[in-house]
Design a protein around this nucleic acid. Structure first.
Lengths: 237, 237
DNA sequence: TACAACCTTATAGTCTCTGCATTTATTCAA
DNA sequence: TTGAATAAATGCAGAGACTATAAGGTTGTA
């Protein structure tokens, strides 16, 4: 059983066999070529032919790896999905589902895989330039919404097919992560992890309205972390 | 006086000028043709040519109205966006942003514009059959995430460009609505409005983990009681 | 009526993406 | 080491999505 990964990720597991490793390399090469070229010349300024050429494979091979040009740019690696899902399942059982997701997402945001460190900003720049990619992005995420929802459901003993709670929880969490990831690029004031953390706090409190203080500070915090005046909500204890 | 739009929607405002009305009709005809045909024969069983033919316009004209075949099926009318945004702005000022959004979304879910009443289920059926459309769907929604975020921001006196709160709030809310709308088609046990209402309650409480077996709450938890069998069903292609 | 602005349309072409048959590379077992 | 068995990469042919352009119709206006 694999150690519920904190590291791993950079090294190519030697046990994987030559064929598998080659595939990973090809996929990465294609993605890098796609992102680099598109960041440079715009989405319509680059054809799949050129991307494939840059990665030194045939055009047809490109489509063996990605169903769409868009996916090559914004899609998540299936491996990443597996990692994240596993990480959620591996969290201590006494955490609430929201807490577990929070921690995994924050960790993830903190380490942004080293090889992709330089690609990440390019990706976001591209998305900002071509908003419709945010869709493809969301779509790609939604493909692991299901996986995550299942993991989340298991934590609280719910069948995600029956009870909407896990799906709702995951949808809300991923929406927050996605939104802030994109914003973060535009207003790189505070580190992403911080902004995300505050957003999660807010979410955990039921998204209470923040006070409209005339804040002329450069980086307006999401909400204060002290006992704010939460509006009276119907709650039972 | 707009009356916080409960009606309107079916009548074509006569003041709009012939040209404008014609455009609306064409757009609607194209959308209806697209949804009907695709629901019948599947996404790849219908070409844009056929859709245009069914709506009695040229293929080129189709692309004057929709940038994409997908958009014709899942995209929102700009007019709807305007209506929803206005409805949010029109809510009483003493409601919290979350409450305001909640009410608007519930109202919207309750009345599903009359002309589209029959199209709505078809749309969802199509999305379920072609999961990647959920992306286009989300994308289209995201185009009014901004509008909504701005309206939400105004309510609490925040500049949505500076403070992430409105964006986060809206993203979470729309994620929930989208998720449940899709699920609702698969498990049509409880009325959508009810399921949505429960989800909003949960959101307002900070997404607390539900108890697997104790049904201590009078107000029904999100747990459904229908025994449904489910399988993934990723048809596509 | 005449004019300007805007829609629609046909044509022709580029690009995306798929199916299929062939070739090349990798694994595995003898 | 060799020889299948297996899987991936490639080239090719083709359908369909989408666009640029130019020409022809409609609508709003003077």
């Amino acid at each position: 059983m694999p150690q519920a990964g904190t590291s791993r990720a950079t090294m190519e597991p030697a046990e994987l066999g030559l064929r598998e490793r080659k595939k990973q390399r090809t996929r990465r090469a294609l993605r890098m070529a796609a992102i680099r070229l598109v960041a440079e010349r715009g989405l319509d300024g680059v054809s799949v032919d050129e991307i494939a050429a840059a990665a030194e494979v045939s055009t047809r091979t490109f489509f063996n790896y990605f169903p769409t040009k868009d996916e090559a740019i914004v899609g998540l690696d299936p491996e990443d999905i597996r990692e994240i899902t596993e990480a959620v399942s591996a969290r201590r059982a006494d955490e609430s589902p929201l807490e577990a997701l929070r921690e995994v997402m924050l960790q993830r945001a903190a380490l942004v895989a080293p090889e992709q460190a330089d690609l990440w900003p390019l990706r976001l720049a591209i998305i900002r330039r071509h908003p419709h990619l945010m869709a493809a992005n969301a779509a790609s995420w939604s493909s692991y919404e299901n996986a995550l929802a299942e993991a989340a459901g298991r934590r609280c003993g719910l069948d995600p097919a029956r009870d909407p709670y896990p799906a709702v929880l995951v949808a809300a969490v991923l929406a927050v992560v996605r939104t802030l990831s994109v914003r973060w690029q535009e207003f790189p004031g505070a580190p992403l992890v911080e902004v995300l953390g505050q957003a999660f706090d807010s979410l955990a409190r039921g998204l209470p309205p923040p006070q409209p203080h005339e804040s002329s500070r450069g980086a307006a915090p999401m909400t204060t972390t002290d006992p704010c005046t939460v509006r009276p909500e119907h709650e039972e204890s």
